[in-house]
Design a protein around this nucleic acid. Sequence first.
DNA 1: TAATTTTCTTAATCTAGGTTAAGTACTTTA
DNA 2: TAAAGTACTTAACCTAGATTAAGAAAATTA
Lengths: 193, 193
Amino acid sequence: MTLDLLFANISKHILLTEVEKNYFHSKLLFRKLKKKEIYIQENQVCESAAFVLSGCLRSYTIDDNGFEHILQFAPPDWWITDMFSFISQKPGTIYIDAIEVSEIILLSRADQLDIFEKIPAFERYFRILTENSLVSYRKRVMDGLSLTAIERYHDFCKRYPTLIECLPQKQIASYIGVTPEFLSKIRSNVKIM
Amino acid sequence: MTLDLLFANISKHILLTEVEKNYFHSKLLFRKLKKKEIYIQENQVCESAAFVLSGCLRSYTIDDNGFEHILQFAPPDWWITDMFSFISQKPGTIYIDAIEVSEIILLSRADQLDIFEKIPAFERYFRILTENSLVSYRKRVMDGLSLTAIERYHDFCKRYPTLIECLPQKQIASYIGVTPEFLSKIRSNVKIM
DNA sequence: TAATTTTCTTAATCTAGGTTAAGTACTTTA
DNA sequence: TAAAGTACTTAACCTAGATTAAGAAAATTA
């Protein structure tokens, strides 16, 4: 296992000395997840954010009727966490599990805050990631308000061409907010639509 | 006009010296907006983020059919901007205007980045605001996927009791993602529902 | 490899919420 | 204060997408 992917990601936004890299490195935990293994669950405090080295994770909620709603997919080179629980360190509302066998790097909130004190550049790194993430959630809210299911599906295909290949269709349906049956109809491109 | 509200907001998250406060202060611009006055428009680069001292602003998009979709309301003590355009300094996709006569404080992205260099605590302040804002957009995505229009309306009433008083009903409808006619039906509490 | 589980498809039927339209009440502006 | 514009309501009708159900195709697991 190698952290190259993570350090390459970081160096896109900030510059670190070897000493700083080593300090950061010393705070990280490595973990493997089996397919379908749950990383965090509803009502649990999400202590760490996870950076994906290989495989793919997803975050989702389960509503009162037992339906899953997918919030985020995290292929390699992405961070994933229950942001609410991570920043407040209170019990959260979402699940995170592995869609396939995955390798992740964990950084706890406590260590993250410690690193912000010691190495301010890291506060910049996460500030930038959070800004970008905010923009993509905002787009998702807008799309939900102004696009049809068909448009949301085509947009998903355009934005995440690699995910389309490897995800089961029902998970894409859950992400764009339609039933698997209706997505199947969209894809079969029934004339009436 | 007084900046007390802004400095009180900042001091909830970070501590500043008088020198730092003055430096920050020197970068701010004050502006008044008339009712319905547009602060930024689609296709325009959003140079500044705005902190609301009085009145109320809103951000929204206009879709291909000419319908408005409200993203955010900003009553006093809130920041508002087109985050995409603000961080990328590229032309944006949203409008921001004043719902009523308003007083705002402007901070340009260039000055914000300059302040991040000079006063790292400010990077923390905005990092925290961005994290919180991310959490609320995430909730909005989840609510859009899992709640009915009625539930979203009741949730809005619970979360923003003061806004309910002062906003025209059609703007609440636009925020929760229903037509004004349907919100009217929800509010009249027709038996069938 | 067979058995089991999960995913995908198709089709009939249903419903939450949209559309259209017309009337009423409230705000602005002149 | 009148005129015009904007906001709200109600009701009939419509549609995008949900639900239900049942079979086919993949993918797991034994």
